[in-house]
């Protein structure tokens, strides 16, 4: 109760329990501990990824922008098939989407039957999503750690924080948070935090692991 009414007290207890962070020995211990936790987390994610062949999910996207009174909300469907196939469809408010197969992207707006084929590098948004999804699905941590400083925020809520390392990405993003399912088998939500406080949140709902996907899903 006390902790609920005064959250700062929690911090006081924390320091009481673990000592002051400025103490070098304690700092080293905490760093060591963080490494262990990260390593365990990566192992769990890798274990989940190894059994993953296909995945399907609904998603919602919320853009919280200081320019707008209300967040911009859109929703759609998402599917993945190992190793390099991705389906991303926005259903509301305006239909649009793209399908990725290797380096090729087919995108559409309004009418899914009318598609445009592009190289993945020509579609930055698709590239950003694909890079994230493929890297996590393949548990390609070396690649991810080249681009981000990854920390496990909270073991119990399966939350990771990624801070960009490249100066280019730093211009736009302060950090990314990724929330996994409790068993670390799939992502529940992703938040992209921009400079100035704006952020975009993707929530993945009704996620199915290894479902059978329609044959022509990636052939659109």
């Amino acid at each position: 109760m006390l902790l609920k009414t005064c959250p700062c007290l929690g911090l006081v207890f924390f320091f009481l329990l673990y000592g002051l962070p400025s103490e070098p020995a304690a700092e080293m211990k905490s760093e060591q501990r963080a490494k262990e936790i990260k390593s365990q987390t990566f192992s769990l994610i890798a274990a989940g990824a190894s059994t993953l062949q296909t995945l399907s999910s609904d998603f919602s996207q919320e853009k919280h922008l200081s320019m707008l009174k209300e967040p911009l909300i859109s929703s759609g469907k998402f599917a993945y098939e190992k190793p390099d196939r991705l389906y991303w469809e926005i259903i509301k408010p305006s239909p649009a989407g793209f399908v990725v197969q290797g380096d090729k992207v087919k995108r559409w707006s309004s009418d899914p039957r009318v598609t445009e084929t592009l190289e993945i590098d020509q579609e930055p948004m698709a590239r950003a999503i694909v890079e994230q999804v493929f890297a996590w699905a393949k548990a390609d941590f070396p690649r991810l750690e080249k681009r981000y400083r990854i920390t496990v925020m909270d073991e119990t809520s399966s939350l990771l924080k990624l801070i960009p390392l490249s100066s280019q990405e730093k211009k736009f993003l302060t950090h990314i948070t990724i929330a996994f399912s409790e068993d670390w088998t799939h992502v529940r939500s992703v938040e992209l935090h921009e400079k100035g406080g704006d952020f975009t949140r993707f929530r993945f709902l009704n996620t199915l692991l290894n479902p059978s996907l329609p044959k022509d899903l990636f052939g659109k």
């Binding site: 853009k63 320019m67 911009l72 305006s94 930055p124 948004m125 736009f172 921009e194 704006d198 975009t200």
Partner: peptide, 17 residues
């Protein structure tokens, strides 16, 4: 509004303002 919600909106936000 549409552009802000699109893929390019992220990079174009400050220009649109």
């Amino acid at each position: 509004r549409e552009r802000l919600n699109s893929a390019e909106g992220w990079a174009m936000k400050s220009l649109l303002q």
